[in-house]
Simulated assay, not measured.
Amino acid sequence: MGKKPRTKQSHGEKVVKDIRRATHKQYSAEEKIRVVLDGLKGEDSIAELCRREGIAQSLYFSWSKEFPEAGKKRLAGDTARAATSTEVKDLRREARDLKEVVVEQALELRLLKKSMIADGDDDE
């Protein structure tokens, strides 16, 4: 009765949506802090600040709400935080390198054991 029929998203709309998603700016923690502090200074209105930074006012207000909460947690001794993508990539690369070293050493150990067994068999 009151339901609208769902229209299938056109190919063009899907492409535009995918492009917007791919080009969506990700703000670093430092950028978020800078924007929130600029808003707290009060030199410009929040609307002007958001327009200049290219963000929605709702996003600014969510950042400004998270800002003191993160400070409270940090001051309370909670040092756990989300790793940045660069840190995750570095840790994965380091783990991969360490695994390669372990594999190489395991192979060397196996070869040494085989050579020790072979040397023991020759003495008999």
Rank of each mutant, 00 (worst) to 15 (best):
M1W: 01
K3R: 14
K3T: 05
K3S: 11
K4L: 07
K4F: 05
T7Q: 15
T7L: 15
K8E: 08
K8G: 04
K8I: 13
K8H: 10
Q9E: 14
G12Q: 13
G12A: 14
E13M: 09
V15Q: 02
V16D: 06
K17A: 11
I19Y: 02
I19S: 08
T23S: 01
H24G: 02
K25A: 03
S28P: 05
S28T: 15
S28N: 09
E30F: 08
E31L: 03
K32V: 04
R34H: 06
R34P: 05
V35W: 04
V35G: 04
V35Q: 00
V36Q: 00
L37Y: 01
L37N: 03
D38L: 12
G39S: 04
G39Q: 00
L40Y: 09
K41V: 13
K41F: 12
G42R: 09
D44Q: 14
D44F: 14
S45L: 05
A47F: 04
A47S: 11
E48R: 09
L49Q: 04
L49Y: 07
L49F: 04
C50S: 10
C50A: 09
R51N: 01
R51D: 08
R52I: 05
R52A: 11
R52V: 09
E53G: 07
E53L: 06
G54C: 01
I55W: 07
I55S: 03
S58E: 10
L59E: 00
Y60K: 03
F61D: 06
S62L: 12
S62I: 02
W63P: 00
W63R: 07
S64W: 01
S64R: 02
K65R: 14
K65L: 09
F67V: 03
F67R: 05
F67N: 10
P68A: 06
A70C: 02
A70T: 11
G71Q: 02
K72C: 08
K73I: 06
K73G: 00
K73N: 03
R74V: 05
R74K: 15
L75Q: 13
A76C: 13
A76F: 06
G77H: 04
G77Q: 10
D78H: 12
D78M: 07
T79A: 13
A80L: 14
R81D: 01
R81L: 07
A83E: 12
A83M: 13
T84C: 08
T84Y: 00
T86G: 02
T86A: 06
E87P: 02
E87V: 06
V88M: 01
K89I: 03
K89D: 05
K89E: 10
L91M: 15
R92C: 12
R92Y: 12
R92I: 14
R92K: 15
R92N: 12
R93H: 08
E94W: 07
E94P: 04
E94S: 00
A95N: 12
R96C: 09
D97P: 00
L98P: 05
K99S: 02
E100P: 00
E100F: 10
V102T: 08
Q105K: 13
Q105F: 12
Q105H: 08
E108V: 07
E108R: 14
L109R: 14
L109E: 14
L109P: 02
L111H: 13
K114Q: 15
S115E: 15
S115M: 15
M116F: 15
M116A: 15
M116S: 05
I117L: 15
I117V: 12
I117Y: 11
A118V: 03
D119C: 03
G120E: 14
D121G: 04
D122M: 10
D122L: 02
D123K: 12
E124H: 10
E124T: 00
E124I: 09
